[in-house]
Write a protein that binds this DNA or RNA. Structure first.
Length: 595
RNA sequence: GGUUCCGUAGCUCAGUUGGAUAGAGCAACAGCCUUCUAAGCUGUGGGUCGAGCGUUCGAGCCGCUCCGGAAUCACCA
């Protein structure tokens, strides 16, 4: 529509003022609601051609368009703004076309699809997932849906941090204090059980340090000298040398954790195409580093540790291999990136990782480019903000970590309470009801997190998160179920909404407002894909729902006597429900049929 | 100290490449269920867009300087 208008305006300027205008000088936007009109041309940039006042210029272009472009039914000029009124017939025709589309996401397909890897989740195997992981998983998964919806080939990956000293901590504590406890024997979810021993380790470790400090030892020294830490380091060495007992313990405990994670992932509705384990990839990076050393891209220190000098890039010196030859985090990420490029030939590799690692990814990219990998330009750090609580950051020491499983459960419990109080589902079986509670609870949680601009830190307010009124997931779900309810009623009346038609109806202003919003869906999705921002879609769905609710409140659909208008409103409702459903699908949010 | 990000109503957040009188929700107050689901709708109050300067016909958005907050600058991951 805009493009068409643009052409006509160019034509107008050409004929009236005999000048050629560049595209970017023709600025068309939607008319603000308090003015009459549908689209607005900002005439200021065109004054250089008209050499006239803004009012006069707008007037002349407006007259030309009304005369030569049937879609433009009228216009008005206020200050430097030319408000164009689009004819009712045009909107109705446009809507007909929209209604005939099989898939609304289809319209967002890009012309040149890319191969894109999305890495998200990246858990440690010593603790259960928490609220921060939830934001990560939801963002990553939604990004996958949006990008693949736009036609890209997207591979979902997860890199599991399954080795290292912190993993040995929970292993050691279990060995010492566990008495053979298993998920089966305790009834605990595997990741929570392992997390329990991690906490137990930290607790006892702290006691040992305090004791040593009391005996006169310096604190830093005490941290190293504490028996538990010595034993842990010993265990890590055994693990690296492939000690059978340690390795067996590691495998067993990790398998508990994975079983636990799988459960949480399933509840969150996320999954992966390929899972990488750090224990497999950490060695790969070493070769790359050693090769780069040979090529003199890196240098060796006196203590034989290996470093990169990134000061020319405005960054610091970066360690890549320790003096004992073992790998660090960066070493492994170098290896993983190269591996992935070889395996998938990706155009882009998107890392969904918190903004605390901005520096890390800056370095990673700089290093790879320095090593001559041109594809390093395709590495994108999707950096998202921290989730904070109203009282500040989550701190494990103060017990303010919000556990993922607890939160999911709480949201569903609240959904159940609210639903039962409203009592609209009494004719459903318990099983069906539980499924609806689940969808509402998860919808509330997901929407609450995804509606916020990813790069901003966000506050998670527990009291607010369980409010299902206003700008929330359940509000949008509710709008959807209302439409579905209308359809059920229509069916009872013998109307088959798949086969109804309308021709030349006169659409009301509210209906045209809805059509305008529906029209914006595909550009919103494209913007979300280009800017990696699910929040745009979330806010769009909210806006659309609000608009529909107003329409629903003001007009009767099935009570309308004129069959043409009734059908028009039914189809308008149908397209709205489809687009809300598509939008929420892109966010990974399920929609109940009733609530 | 260097780098990156953030600062919009009491609170949580929107605000597309600079465009008209900066928008929602929550909280507060006042209304609307005999009619398709009231998890809804309508109205009222609430703002020097952190501050200042600059660019521009026009700045919440762009540039500079401050102020405030977060993260990071590890032989942790």
């Amino acid at each position: 529509m805009e493009i068409n208008l643009k052409e006509k305006i160019k034509e107008a300027v050409k004929i009236i003022y005999n000048s050629d205008v560049k595209d970017d000088l023709i600025q068309i936007q939607e008319t603000r609601k308090d003015f009459k009109g549908d689209f607005t041309l900002v005439v200021f940039p065109l004054l250089r051609f008209s050499k006239n006042t803004p009012e006069k210029t707008g007037e002349m272009i407006g007259q030309y368009l009304t005369k030569n472009f049937p879609a433009v039914s009228g216009f008005n000029v206020i200050k430097g703004f030319l408000n164009l009124e689009i004819s009712n017939a045009w909107w109705v025709e446009f809507f007909k076309k929209l209604a005939s589309e099989k898939s609304h996401i289809e319209a967002c397909k890009v012309s040149e699809p890319e191969t894109i890897l999305v890495e998200y989740s990246s858990p440690n195997t010593n603790k259960p997932l928490h609220l921060g992981h939830i934001r990560n998983n939801l963002l990553g998964y939604s990004l996958y849906r949006i990008l693949s919806g736009c036609g890209h080939r997207v591979i979902k990956t997860n890199i599991v941090n399954d080795r290292g000293i912190h993993i040995c901590k929970s292993m050691l504590a279990w060995q010492k204090f566990g008495n053979g406890e298993t998920p089966e024997s305790s009834g605990m979810k595997g990741d929570h059980l392992v997390g329990k021993y991690y906490v137990l380790f930290e607790k006892n470790y702290k006691i040992q340090i305090e004791k040593l400090v009391k005996e006169g030892m310096d604190e830093a020294e005490a941290k190293n000298a504490a028996l538990l830490m010595r034993e842990t380091r010993d265990m890590l060495l055994k693990w690296e040398s492939g000690d059978e007992e340690v390795f067996g313990l590691w495998k067993m405990m990790n398998s508990w954790v994975y079983a636990g994670f799988d459960e949480t992932y399933k509840k969150l509705g996320v999954d992966f195409d390929k899972i990488y384990y750090e224990s497999d990839t950490y060695k790969v990076g070493k070769d790359i580093v050693l090769t780069a050393l040979k090529d003199k891209i890196l240098y060796r220190n006196e203590d034989s540790s290996i470093w990169a000098d990134l000061t020319p890039d405005g960054l610091d010196q970066k360690l890549l291999l320790r003096s004992d030859g073992t790998a660090v985090y960066m070493t492994q990420d170098l290896g993983t990136a190269v591996n992935r490029q070889n395996e998938f030939k990706f155009d882009k590799n998107i890392y969904v990782v918190g903004n605390e690692q901005n520096y890390h990814f800056q370095v990673l990219k700089a290093l790879l480019k320095r090593m001559g990998y041109k594809w390093a330009d395709g590495l994108i750090h999707f950096s998202y903000g921290m989730v904070e609580l109203p009282e500040g950051r989550m701190k494990s020491r103060e017990g303010t970590i919000v556990d993922a499983d607890d939160l999911i459960k709480e949201m569903q419990t609240t959904a159940k309470e609210v639903s039962l109080e409203l009592g609209k589902l009494s004719d459903f079986s318990d099983e069906e009801q539980e499924d609806i509670f689940r969808k509402i609870g998860m919808g509330a949680l997901k929407y609450y997190i995804l509606k916020v601009d990813p790069k901003k830190n966000m506050t998670f307010n527990p009291a607010e998160s369980i409010d299902f009124n206003g700008n929330t997931g359940p509000f949008i779900q509710y709008t959807y179920t209302r439409i579905k309810s209308v359809f059920r009623k229509a069916e009872q009346m013998g109307i088959n909404i798949e086969h109804i038609l309308f021709s030349g109806v006169k659409a009301g202003t509210k209906e045209i407002e809805l059509i305008k919003l529906l029209r914006k869906f595909s550009e919103t999705v494209s913007a979300a894909a280009a800017g990696y921002s699910p929040a745009l879609i979330a806010n769009y769905c909210y806006e659309l729902s609000r608009e529909y609710n107003q329409f629903y409140h003001d007009f009767s659909i099935l009570g309308e006597d004129d069959e043409e208008i009734r059908n028009f409103r039914l189809i308008l409702s149908k397209v709205t429900s489809e687009i809300i459903h598509s939008g929420m699908w892109l966010l990974g949010i399920e929609m109940p049929e009733r609530m």
